[in-house]
Structures are given as structure tokens and as C-alpha cells.
């Protein structure tokens, strides 16, 4: 999943409004940031065993839980951070094809191969996340403006990625 992960971060904001959105966005993309680091280090694995397998993502979630909990003493917030990290794995199973554990099977619906279906699923995730996030915003005379900007920008970003997918069948991460 691409921009759909932002939907999970926005939903996390609704679950615990005191958590900074930056923390939730980093949590939502944690496995992809690990992939980037591995790519720069020259040890990238195209299947994502070290970044997207079940044990890896649970390790990142535990790290996020411990780090956020120790810094803020907000252990309920730490649970939300861990849940947002874990959401990456579940969302990627819908759109991608990811490893389960070393020696285990690959899993996922591979919607990346169908950019229109991918846009639909990611769009629904973005929409749900944005609607949940909308409830965290301060009261305004025209609250739908801010929500529309968020929803429109995220959908436009997702659409750009899906069009790029349609034009170039292969977009290697590393």
C-alpha cells in the first residue's frame, strides 16, 4: 500500500489525539523507512524479509511501543503507535505480496498489478482515515474545507502513483 498508510496514521490520531501526527506517520511507514535504510546500506532484499515479514513488523511495533511509552509515559498512546505500525503489515497484505517469516510462504492479494483496483482500495482507506481524523480538528465555521484539502491531496498523490504504475510496469524500490 502507498498513500493508504496515511489513512492508518490519521485513524491513529482519532484513537489518541495527543499523539503527534509526525509520530503516527513515521509509525505507519516504519517498514518502508527500514527498506530505505537497507537500500542505502546495499543490503536491500526485494521480498522485504527484514522489513515486512511478520516477526520484523512485530519487532518494529514493540520498539515503537517501548520508545513512545518511555518518552511520554503515555502507555495507551504507545499501544496506538504499535497498532499503527502493525497496520502497515495488514494493509500491505491487501495490495502487495509480502513475506510471512523466514522459510514461510509469501502472502498478499497483489493489487499493485491492478492499479485501478489498488486506487479504489487505497482510496477507501484514505477516506475512512480522513473522516476519523476530521473529528480531531477544532470547531470551524467551514470544517469541510480542511477535510476536503486533506482528502483531495492524498487521493491526488495516490492517483499520481497509480498512473505511474500504469505507464511503467516496473517501479523497483531499490
Amino acid at each position: 500500500m502507498y498513500i493508504g498508510h496515511v489513512g492508518a496514521a490519521l485513524a491513529g490520531k482519532r484513537a489518541r489525539a495527543s499523539i503527534g501526527l509526525l509520530v503516527l506517520l513515521v509509525a505507519a511507514y516504519a517498514p518502508d523507512w527500514v527498506d530505505t535504510g537497507l537500500c542505502l546500506a546495499g543490503s536491500y532484499n526485494p521480498h522485504g524479509m527484514l522489513s515486512h515479514s511478520i516477526p520484523s513488523v512485530f519487532l518494529f511495533a514493540l520498539t515503537g511501543f517501548a520508545a513512545y511509552g518511555m518518552v511520554t509515559r503515555d502507555w495507551r498512546g504507545a499501544l496506538v503507535v504499535a497498532a499503527v505500525v502493525l497496520s502497515h503489515m495488514f494493509l500491505d497484505w491487501i495490495t502487495g505480496y509480502k513475506p510471512t517469516w523466514p522459510g514461510g510462504p509469501m502472502m498478499g492479494l497483489r493489487l499493485y498489478e491492478h492499479p485501478i483496483a489498488d486506487f479504489f482500495v487505497e482510496g477507501v482507506t484514505i477516506f475512512i482515515g480522513t473522516m476519523l481524523y476530521a473529528r480531531t480538528l477544532p470547531p470551524r465555521r467551514r470544517p469541510w474545507v480542511d477535510v476536503s484539502i486533506m482528502l483531495g491531496a492524498l487521493l491526488a498523490l495516490q492517483l499520481t502513483i497509480n498512473i505511474a504504475q500504469l505507464l511503467t510496469k516496473s517501479l523497483p524500490k531499490c
Binding site: 502507498y2 498513500i3 498508510h5 496515511v6 496514521a9 490519521l10 501526527l21 509526525l22 506517520l25 513515521v26 511507514y29 518502508d32 523507512w33 527498506d35 530505505t36 537500500c39 542505502l40 546495499g42 536491500y44 480538528l137 477544532p138 480542511d146 484539502i149 486533506m150 491531496a153 492524498l154 498523490l157 502513483i161 523497483p172 524500490k173 531499490c174
Partner: peptide
């Protein structure tokens, strides 16, 4: 060399996906 270019592109995409919602959120809470 190629993998550095890919990494830069990947980092760019992650930064956009992170910074864009942050900027919109900051505007919405002003």
C-alpha cells in the same frame, strides 16, 4: 549507483507522503 538513485526516489516519496499531511494538518489547526 542505480540503487542510490532508487533510494533517493524512495526517500523522496516517503518524505512527500509524510510532509504533505503534516502541512495540511498544521494549516487545519491554525
Amino acid at each position: 549507483m542505480d540503487h542510490y538513485l532508487y533510494a533517493v526516489r524512495f526517500i523522496g516519496a516517503l518524505l512527500i507522503a509524510t510532509l504533505l499531511p503534516l502541512l495540511i494538518d498544521r494549516r487545519a489547526r491554525r
